[in-house]
């Protein structure tokens, strides 16, 4: 199975990943969540062999069996959609016929088949990300690494993109995608939350929610103890196991859980 074990990566003197283990099972989507600088992209780059591991092992299929979409989408701006597809197909050693039929299938599913003659740079953000996904999927890889494929994409395109990702997993690929949208991560089979290069929580979304210590509660006005965050019009508060809970206790969703886990972790290390 693809993944990393006890992986430590040091970048310019700082520890970007501190001995983490992540498994990416085939046929499933694994979502990698975490704040900025948590180490999400570094993990993908380590799996791609772009940064060296100081310790631990990286287990991935050969380069020809990996598909990767960088956060910049990886689309060549001065090539048309069709030329992008042709170049990537050729680079992965696909025959012209295979490139054509695969591109038809993917571009149609992604809803960008009509844009074949448009230049990469003229595509909207959402279309470019979808094309980036098609390029990564082009050669039907065994391991699909997607770096924030949905960032900056409108809600409708996000739904379509997610449909593509799910379809890829159903086709047998092991999918590892980073995201900052937790509603999206909630749909993944496994969520891995990173913070400061360490795994904060991992498992299916329900397991991650169960792992939250203490209580999450909702109130209409801020209780004001520094463990409160705002969501919409309400205030959510995390209280450690022995504390007094302000407002109404709720079962946290993934977003609440991750905030609560982060707070718990911060208090623990303090």
């Amino acid at each position: 199975m693809a993944g990393v074990r006890d992986l430590t990566v040091e970048l310019g003197g700082t520890t970007a990943l501190a001995g983490i283990s992540v498994e990416v099972p085939p046929g499933e989507v694994t979502a990698l969540v975490g704040g900025d600088g948590a180490g999400k992209t570094t993990l993908l780059r380590a799996m791609l062999g772009r940064v060296a591991a100081s310790r631990g092992t990286v287990d991935v299929p050969p380069a020809a069996r990996i598909g990767y979409e960088p956060s910049t989408s990886g689309v060549w701006p001065t090539l048309t959609v069709q030329e992008n597809v042709e170049f990537v197909g050729a680079a992965y050693g696909m025959s012209d016929g295979a490139v054509r039929s695969r591109a038809d299938e993917l571009l149609t599913t992604a809803g960008i088949a009509d844009a074949r003659t448009r230049l990469g740079r003229d595509l909207s953000g959402g279309m470019r990300q979808k094309l980036g996904f098609c390029l990564a999927m082009q050669h039907s890889p065994d391991l699909l690494l997607l770096d924030e494929p949905s960032t900056g994409v409108d809600p409708v395109s996000r739904i379509e993109l997610w449909r593509l990702v799910t379809a890829a997993a159903q086709g047998g690929a092991a999918v590892l995608m980073t995201t900052t949208y937790l509603d999206e991560a909630e749909r993944a089979a496994t969520v891995v939350a990173l913070q400061d290069g360490e795994v904060l929580a991992a498992g299916d979304p329900a397991t991650v929610v169960d792992a939250v210590p203490g209580t999450v509660s909702v109130s209409d006005s801020p209780p004001g103890d520094g463990r409160t965050w705002r969501r919409g019009r309400t205030f959510h508060t995390w209280t450690p196991a022995d504390g007094e809970v302000p407002g109404r206790a709720v079962t946290p969703d993934l977003e609440d859980s991750l905030v609560a886990l982060t707070l718990a972790r911060t208090e623990e290390t303090r």
Binding site: R50, Y68, S73, G74, V75, P77, A91
Partner: peptide, 17 residues
């Protein structure tokens, strides 16, 4: 540099080339 700027140099680097 255009390749580096567009982020596609990274893409080339991970291809089986």
């Amino acid at each position: 540099v255009r390749e580096r700027e567009a982020g596609t140099l990274e893409q080339l680097a991970v291809m089986p080339l």
